[in-house]
Simulated scan of single mutants.
Amino acid sequence: MTDKPQDLQDRLLQCFGAVSALLEQENELLKSGQWQDVEKLVPRKRELTQLLRKLLSPAQVRSLTAEERASQVGPEMEAAIKRFNALVKANDDLLQSAIAAQDTLIKLVLDDAAQEQRLGYGASGSYTVGAHGGGALALRGDF
């Protein structure tokens, strides 16, 4: 079922506003490194973006005449779309930075763990570097 042009515009503006508000909240959380709180927003973000897709579906748009479609993109809608696009771009940049930071942290932890495996005590009881073969335990029969 399709909406009347004004109803569709009102619903689109409301949806763009809700998605934009959520993106602003997510972007602030990403800036402050609160990644677990970002994860809590994912279900609502998914729900709102699905609603936006539905409102922008070809079936909805096709039901409008060319004049009705042109009238939908007034100054208020243009501003909402411009704000949404800017927030999406900032969100993408912040998410990419968060992913890069987590990758760096994981590499540091793995490198540190690998370094610890290379350090330890040798068979004679002295401290050695690189004497361990992959962390395996070997029993010696010369005691």
Rank of each mutant, 00 (worst) to 15 (best):
L55G: 08
L41V: 09
A101W: 07
V42Y: 05
R83P: 03
R83N: 08
L95C: 02
Q102T: 01
T49V: 08
P58R: 15
G74L: 06
Q96V: 15
A59C: 04
E47K: 04
N91C: 12
M77V: 07
L52D: 02
A100W: 10
A59L: 09
E76C: 02
R62P: 00
N85Y: 10
G74Q: 11
L55S: 09
V73C: 03
V61R: 10
Q72W: 05
Q34L: 02
E47T: 04
T49C: 04
S63E: 12
L48Q: 09
Q102N: 12
A86N: 04
R69H: 02
G74V: 09
R83M: 01
Q102G: 03
S63M: 07
A79L: 01
A98D: 05
I81W: 09
Q36L: 07
L55W: 05
M77E: 02
K89M: 14
A79E: 01
K89Q: 15
G74S: 11
A59I: 01
Q36G: 04
Q60M: 12
G33M: 04
P58V: 14
S57G: 05
E76W: 03
L48E: 06
T49R: 09
S97W: 12
L64R: 04
R46E: 13
V88W: 01
A101N: 08
L51Q: 10
G74I: 07
L52K: 05
K40F: 00
V42C: 08
R69N: 01
L41A: 11
L55N: 07
V73P: 04
L51R: 12
R46A: 11
D103Y: 02
D93Q: 13
N91D: 14
T49D: 08
S63V: 12
T104A: 14
V38R: 01
S71C: 02
A101C: 03
A100G: 11
L55R: 02
S71E: 11
I99P: 00
A100C: 11
L87S: 06
D93V: 14
K54I: 04
P43W: 07
N85C: 08
E67N: 05
R53L: 07
Q36E: 12
K89Y: 15
L52S: 02
S57L: 07
D37M: 06
A66L: 05
Q96W: 12
K89T: 15
I106M: 10
P75E: 11
V38M: 08
E67I: 00
L87D: 12
A90Q: 14
A86T: 15
R53H: 10
G74Y: 05
Q60C: 05
D103F: 05
S32E: 00
T104R: 14
A100Y: 12
